[in-house]
């Protein structure tokens, strides 16, 4: 029973992942619709701090060992998760920047990005609803 269930969960899991259905999501207050991947990396590296209209960017991430975090890091940002971590640590402990805000689940990611002005994060497409916008990365 357990086995069958976990197998089916696994099957659904790989299905979700196989066609790469995840998105960079933003709070509806953000006016940007398209970003270059370099700008996106600059945002997740916590170097670019404001949107083009001057509002604060607030970055939300899942745990370093979360699978989606690792995929977004490697595929969208084109860096390894450990490099992001060391970039953030350098900023935080030299005072020259801040760390992104860590959320513990997809639900929390959705909730925080939907409710925080200037927020940016990422989610599996299946977990996204109309409370957040999807950002196109070119």
């Amino acid at each position: 029973m357990y086995f069958a269930l976990s197998l089916s969960l696994l099957a659904i899991g790989t299905e979700v992942r196989a066609d790469g259905h995840y998105e960079i999501i933003i709070n509806p207050s953000v006016k940007e619709r398209i970003l270059s991947s370099n700008t996106l990396r600059s945002i997740f590296s916590m170097h670019l701090k404001t949107w083009s209209n001057g509002a604060k960017i607030r970055v939300f991430v899942l745990s370093d060992d979360d699978q989606l975090h690792q995929i977004v890091s490697k595929e969208k940002l084109n860096v390894f998760p450990y490099q992001l971590r060391s970039t953030w640590d350098r900023l935080v402990f030299s005072g020259t920047g801040q760390a992104p805000i860590k959320v513990n689940s997809s639900e929390e990611m959705l909730e925080k990005v939907a409710s925080t002005p200037g927020a940016i994060g990422y989610l599996w497409r299946a977990n996204i609803n109309e409370n957040v916008n999807v950002l196109e990365i070119k």
Partner: peptide, 16 residues
């Protein structure tokens, strides 16, 4: 943690 790793994938079928 092992749950967490697959959590994002599992979430859509949470009702199960």
């Amino acid at each position: 943690q092992s749950q967490k790793q697959s959590e994002s994938a599992k979430a859509p079928v949470k009702w199960v």
